Simulated assay, not measured.
Amino acid sequence: MESIAPLWLWVVFVAIVIAALFIDFVVLSKQGSHVVGVKEALRWSLVWVALSFMFNAFFWWAVKDSTGSTEIANEKALEFLTGYLIEKSLAVDNIFVFLLIFTYFAVPAAYQKRVLMIGIVGAIVLRTVMILVGGWLISEFHWILYVFGAFLVLTGLKMWWAAGKEESLEDNPALKLLRKVLPVSKNFDGEKFWTVENGKRIATPLFMVICLVGLTDVIFAVDSIPAIFAITKDPFIVLTSNVFAILGLRAMFFLLQAAASRFHLLNYGLAVILVFIGTKMMLIDVFKIPVAVSLGVVLSILVITMIWSSKTAPNT
């Protein structure tokens, strides 16, 4: 798998991610368990978005410096921006499922932040592995792009069909399996994942939540990672745009949690985006849709869907 990024840029990226996670965990430990308000969520969301844009600017400079071409730097930076926007958009669907999980288990608001932080670290590790494997598969078997494309189109159609329908975890097979394998306490024990009842060590509901959040990310990674390979085959751009989108997931969760009802139609827009990206991937050897066009289409779909949602949002 070839990448335009030099080795030192990979090192810089890893250092930035480690530093960002360290700062986030330090802030988390100092604050302790508390309810994250809209202002705090908005502030942190802006921080993560700003960090992503600053990294993209640095990436643009690094590519220009190593290649001596402004045109190539512009193209690669645009690929990062498009990939970041797609991953950020698809992360919204993750958030709605997280909301469903937290509601089903009645997770106290003060404990949700820690669950999300652990989920983010797990998602970064998981997606790094999946991206490297996916990149190798594409480099060895070009035809797999058509498989990924068809899968995205089918996923988009399925998402459109399921949008607006009432969801429930009651019949979730993963949840049923976890309950069979693990004895689970009926009550939370602070932020602990394990507790002791009648002299036996058993899982708390919070541990079940962590497991389901992890499984959810596995499922959504299968959708989102092929989507970004339709934009670029460069593993550095695929990985960095994915990770920077994930880093802001915790703050975005609490931000959208307060405004979930105003984005009740967003899944329709995400479904259209998946179908578009899947179609783009299947046509890659026939007609290559420019990255700028892809960015414009994704942005337009998101804006239209958000306006549509706001105009039809139920009165609260």
Rank of each mutant, 00 (worst) to 15 (best):
V209F: 06
L206T: 01
A163N: 14
L152S: 05
T155N: 15
L178Q: 04
P205H: 00
L154W: 08
V181H: 06
K176G: 07
M208W: 11
K192Q: 09
F193G: 06
T204Y: 04
G190Y: 01
K186R: 08
V196R: 10
S168N: 07
L212M: 06
F193E: 02
V153S: 12
M159L: 15
F207C: 09
K176I: 04
L177P: 05
I202P: 03
L206W: 08
K186E: 11
N187F: 12
V181D: 08
N198E: 04
D189Y: 11
K180W: 09
V184N: 05
K186L: 12
R201C: 11
E166Y: 15
L215T: 01
L182S: 08
S168L: 05
G156S: 12
L178R: 01
E170I: 03
D189Q: 06
N187E: 15
A174I: 11
K200V: 00
A163L: 14
S168E: 04
K200N: 04
V196K: 09
T155R: 13
V153D: 12
E166C: 11
G199L: 00
V153R: 14
V184Q: 07
C211N: 03
W194E: 06
T195F: 05
T204R: 08
R179W: 12
L215I: 10
A163R: 12
E191D: 15
L206D: 00
P183W: 00
G190I: 02
L157T: 05
K186F: 07
K158V: 11
L206P: 14
T204P: 03
K176Y: 01
V181P: 00
T195Y: 08
C211L: 09
V153K: 12
L154D: 14
S185R: 01
N172S: 10
G190K: 04
S185Y: 09
F151A: 11
L182V: 03
V213L: 15
T195N: 04
R201S: 05
F151H: 11
F193W: 07
D189V: 03
S168K: 01
L157P: 01
W194M: 11
L182K: 09
I210M: 15
L154F: 15
G214W: 08
T155Y: 13
L154Q: 10
D171Y: 03
A174V: 12
K158Y: 15
S185C: 04
I202K: 00
P173W: 02
W160Y: 13
N198T: 01
G199I: 00
L206C: 02
F151N: 10
K200D: 05
L175V: 05
V196A: 10
L177G: 03
R201G: 06
L182G: 07
P173M: 02
M159I: 14
F188C: 07
K180E: 13
L178Y: 08
V181K: 10
K180A: 11
L177D: 04
G164T: 13
K180S: 14
V153Y: 14
E167T: 10
P173Q: 03
C211T: 01
C211W: 01
K186T: 05
V213R: 06
S185A: 08
A162N: 14
M159Q: 13
K180D: 12
D189S: 09
T204C: 10
L215G: 01
A163Q: 13
A203E: 00
G156E: 12
G190F: 02
L206E: 00
K180R: 15
D189T: 04
K176M: 07
G164V: 13
R201Q: 05
L178H: 07
